[in-house]
Design a binder for these strands. Structure first.
Lengths: 236, 236
DNA sequence: CAGTGGTCTAGACCACTGA
DNA sequence: CAGTGGTCTAGACCACTGT
């Protein structure tokens, strides 16, 4: 290929945004199939790898779906994918410029209640460490944390008192890069939580629940209740 | 490294998971800097592009941070990134196997209220189309939709009656691939919403708010209130 | 200003899967 | 079973930025 040395080669970003425009313009609306990588590479005068990179990006964004033999199909109703950073509460609070404070509310070793046993696949009679904690921003209640740690999977949690360091930070240092399931929902403040968050009982609170595994063993389950009015935001 | 030279080449996935283990094991805990791509490529006996792909993935997962001259630094507290698919309500409901039904509750063209003008950067006196709709799954209330459409950006919305097709589906077909800001929160059901969702007023509801732009022009703002107890879930 | 990651190329083989 | 995407290679130049 005697490339004209005019341009350094098309970038995958240019290809991606050009493809987006052409898709939006309905260029391939007939069958909804984008031309193959080889054809597009010829059209753009670039290597196939570059087109591949662009198309892979579009697939990650949920705009198209790629299958080996079938080609690249445009999704009729693009699945919008939003990404959220799930920060540690300290980080989240300090990012706003506020002073962070942590406090342990309660710490107890108990038999796992049934709902938790079911969720973490624990044996009957298994013991767990139950912690409740508060996170403050500039002295004001920010988040109430209700955490359960599987002691058979993480026995050394028992020797931690969690008075200076919150369980979240400790766990991130101790069991990094685990798998997790996360759920967002709304819940009314229980009398206990309401008192800690300085709000009325039954106030609607935004809640994050997260269950974490390490190599298919359940490590911990946590519910985070935010102060009233909290919004979790992202762009996509 | 006793690599068999016969092997088809290390895959970037293998490298990625190996790097994860080594990071977790604290191999580079001293300065928190992973060796450069060239060095790692030599170590794994593969091309630099392969290592690059692995490291790029790790950066996308929020495990490391990459800067040109500085190298690849391990993030002390990995920023967990969760991805959510933001489906259209029809898709969300039908995915559960339930029968989907849509109903328009109200449709009106009004002057934009102040809070909306601020959010969408509208001119004073701008007119918007205000729609409220219900989405049902197997006949039961699933979601209440409170939508505002910027008529100056999307005049043809005025000629839609939105009685058969919901605004969400119409918008996705009409203005695909726009930018958006999304927020999750909890809110108490207003009397009106409570009636449509068949719950008591002030019941905590999970809410998604989304504002959408196309080329820096605000198109629409929507608040979606889900039936009580709704959980939005993902793995990461 | 030198070193690191960012990206592109041209070519190759492979894995999957739909016709 | 043939065509498409998935991935790897070996090499190159470039852009950015810390020292």
């Amino acid at each position: 290929m005697a490339d004209q040395p005019e341009k350094r080669g098309v970038t995958f970003r240019e290809i991606k945004s050009d493809l987006l425009e052409r898709i939006a313009a309905g260029e391939w609306a007939a069958d909804g199939i984008v031309p193959g990588e080889v054809e597009l590479a010829a059209e753009y005068g670039c290597a196939r790898a570059t087109v591949n990179r662009a198309l892979r990006d579009l697939a990650e964004d949920g705009v198209v779906e790629r299958k080996r033999r079938a080609g690249t199909r445009i999704l009729a109703q693009p699945v919008r994918k939003a990404r959220f950073d799930i920060p540690i509460s300290r980080t989240e609070i300090e990012a706003t410029g506020a002073r962070y404070r942590y406090a342990l509310v309660d710490r107890a070793i108990v038999e796992a209640p049934d709902w938790l046993r079911a969720r973490l696949a624990l044996d009957r009679g298994a013991h767990v460490l139950h912690l409740t904690c508060m996170h403050y921003g500039d002295g004001a209640p920010f988040q109430f944390e209700d955490r359960w740690i599987n002691l058979s999977a993480l026995p050394k949690a028992e020797s931690q008192n969690f008075e200076a360091q919150g369980p979240n930070e400790w766990l991130v240092e101790t069991v990094p890069y685990s798998d997790a399931e996360i759920a967002f929902s709304a819940i009314g403040a229980s009398p206990d939580v309401a008192e800690h968050l300085s709000c009325d009982p039954n106030t609607p609170l935004f809640r994050i629940e997260r269950t974490t595994w390490w190599q298919d063993v359940a490590i911990t389950h946590v519910a985070l209740m935010f102060r009233p009015g909290h919004r979790m935001t992202t762009r996509y």
